[in-house]
Design a protein around this nucleic acid. Structure first.
Length: 557
RNA sequence: UGGGACGUCGCCAAGCUGGUUAAGGCACGGGGUUUUGAUCCCCGCAUUCGCAGGUUCGAAUCCUGCCGUCCCAGCCA
């Protein structure tokens, strides 16, 4: 039906070249999260890239947990990550952990020691930092740099055996303290951490640093293309130095691409964690969060997120994508798939004066205006209805198509009504609209094609189900909360990012059926029952996204 | 006065081994259809590719020099 968007980009071109030239018979990619937080929409870009490439070219993709820091990582995060990757629609060909390679990594470190390419430094962290130099000045050599090999080996083995306290020693590569690339100024391979690891338990007292673990893990797994984000460009020379100085089982290539950022939110695990831990949001899966768990709870589909990243492409220029593009992706998806229903969020009562009291009927209404295969639903109707408060104006502006005194409007899926009287309370507020309906214009009747300007949605008061509705707005009220270095990004939190409405009325059919749970509440947007709080007694709907609203746009001008 | 990268329409982003009209999506503007002011359908939307020179019959694409932005000084990843 649709032309698949062939997203061509530089990494895809590299893969094609490598396949064409015979450098690789097939490709192996990997998605390497650290299990220290939840995945967000930015990670989804990497997931789609890695798994997408392998899928397209018949390769394989590994899920590998970069679990080299036992102080920050845990199994719960690992579980949430696996859950999110699967939810996004991908299945790894193999599951690995950097911690699976601790023995091999240790052996290779010993190899570097024996080759005179690594040494044990017994200075503290502050001293090592001071000796590293600055961005413009070279560092100076550690006094331990020329420690005899035998001594290095002895010390390193005893580090591994747990004979020392945290921070007492460190194993460093012997590269170049004067390098313009700070990563090459004798980087640390191992630090002592006397803490149990969530997978290896008490086996280790030393843990490898990212740089020492990552490329080697890639090599072990025969990864062909190791895709990472731009901030690791500086690390590539080190990545390659390590692979060149050990008997590497393969030579993976690191390629960097730009992270995917969105405006009006933040996208670092550190900040997302802060939002959670300080209670600015309800948890990692708060529907306002850009986490996959949050987006899922908000009602985003995996298809929409994959389509979004497919459209965005992959490049090396840092970018902040407009939220509107993501919203467009979910609207596109849900427009095709969401069954329609009616719900009134801010109700005002309508009484049909010429509708018999005590009577009721059921109207058949399409579940989708353009897709008959989705079938129909029964919509109950009776004398008293709820309509949206803003669908009536006593003194409307020009071009207001909705209900007004003596005006006519069509009730969606039903008939045309005319407002004949407006009832107000002592405060002058409208409390009820008395209307007359035109039975000839009932859907399906010959007179139904009579035209009126407006069509509004409604629910039968007698049959409607009370529901809570949660409306969401952007989490921050400025496009880039991090732009101003002098202001804490938390100061830009949008106080109105969540609006809870507990007065909503929903048509019964919206709660039935074993089809998808998401719905389009016509004219109000796309909604999904909240996966945690919604119950049969008290349904709770999250608004995923509004519909496009050109009328509101006119009003704002 | 260090090293690495990036700069094509408001936001993304093709094109960048030079060849003549600078893809596409979002946003935006205009029109049509419509029992969702939704959807859908048309149409419009960069004489210009950070700037300045140069090479060339011809440059977003090559060269030079500027300017701007981002990343790096964790025993984090």
């Amino acid at each position: 039906m649709e032309e698949p968007t062939k997203s061509t980009h530089f990494i895809r071109n590299i893969v094609i070249d490598d396949l064409d030239s015979g450098k690789h018979e097939s490709i192996v990619t990997r998605f390497p999260p650290e299990p220290n937080g939840f995945l967000h929409i930015g990670h989804a870009k990497s997931i789609c890239l890695n798994f997408g490439l392998a899928d397209e070219f018949g390769g394989r993709t590994h899920l590998r947990f970069d679990d080299t820091n036992p102080l920050k990582e845990n199994e719960d995060f690992a579980q949430s990550i696996m859950n999110d990757v699967r939810w996004l629609g991908f299945e790894w060909d193999a599951l690995h952990h950097a911690s699976d390679y601790f023995d091999q990594l240790y052996a290779w470190a010993l190899h570097l020691v024996d080759e005179g390419l690594a040494y044990v430094d017994s200075q503290d962290a502050d001293t090592i930092r001071a000796q590293r130099g600055t961005l413009t000045e070279p560092g100076i050599n550690s006094p331990y740099r020329d420690r005899p090999t035998a001594e290095n080996r002895d010390l390193f083995e005893r580090m591994a055996a747990g004979e020392f306290a945290d921070g007492e020693h460190v194993l460093r590569a012997k590269i170049d303290m004067a390098s313009g690339n700070i990563n090459l100024r004798d980087p640390v391979l191992y630090r002592i951490i006397n803490a149990p690891h969530h997978r290896t338990g008490d086996t280790w007292h030393i843990y490898p640093m990212y740089d020492w673990a990552h490329g080697q893990s890639d090599a072990i797994e025969q990864i062909t293309h190791s895709l990472c984000t731009l901030e690791f460009e500086d690390h590539r020379p080190l990545y390659e130095w390590y692979l060149a100085h050990i008997p590497a089982p393969s030579q993976p290539r690191q390629i960097e691409f730009a992270r995917g950022n969105l405006n009006y939110t933040v996208m670092s695990k550190r900040r997302l964690r802060q939002l959670v831990e300080e209670g600015h949001v309800d948890g990692w899966d708060d529907p306002r969060m850009p986490t996959l768990a949050g987006l899922r709870r908000r009602g985003y589909t995996p298809e929409s997120i994959r389509a979004f990243w497919g459209e965005m492409g992959v490049s090396k220029s840092e970018s902040i994508i407009d939220m509107g593009v993501l919203e467009n992706a979910i609207r596109n998806d849900l427009n095709d798939r969401a069954p329609r229903a009616m719900a009134v969020l801010d109700p005002i009562k309508v009484v049909l004066l010429n509708y018999p009291e005590g009577e009721e009927e059921f109207l058949e209404a399409a579940l989708h205006p353009k897709d008959e295969s989705m079938g129909t639903r029964q919509v109950p109707l009776s004398r008293e209805l709820w309509i949206e408060r803003h669908d009536f104006m006593e003194d409307p502006p020009r071009k207001y198509f909705r209900l007004k005194p003596d005006g006519e409007v069509r009730l969606r899926n039903a008939f045309i009504i005319k407002c004949v009287d407006v009832i107000k309370n002592d405060a002058g507020e409208v409390t009820e609209l008395q209307c007359e309906f035109d039975p000839d214009t009932r859907s399906g009747m010959p007179g139904a094609n009579r035209k009126v300007k407006g069509t509004i949605h409604w629910v039968s008061a007698k049959h409607a189900v009370a529901a809570e509705v949660r409306l969401y707005d952007r989490l921050f009220n400025v496009a880039n909360p991090l732009a101003d270095k002098d202001t804490d990004y938390l100061a830009h939190l949008n106080p109105d990012s969540l609006t809870v409405i507990d007065t909503a009325w929903v048509e019964p059919a919206a709660l039935e059926g074993d089809g998808p749970a998401y719905r389009q509440f016509e004219r109000n947007g796309y909604f999904i029952p909240d996966e945690k709080d919604s119950t049969a007694d008290k349904p709770v709907f999250n608004r995923t996204v509004t519909l496009r609203d050109t009328w509101a746009k006119v009003g704002n001008r």
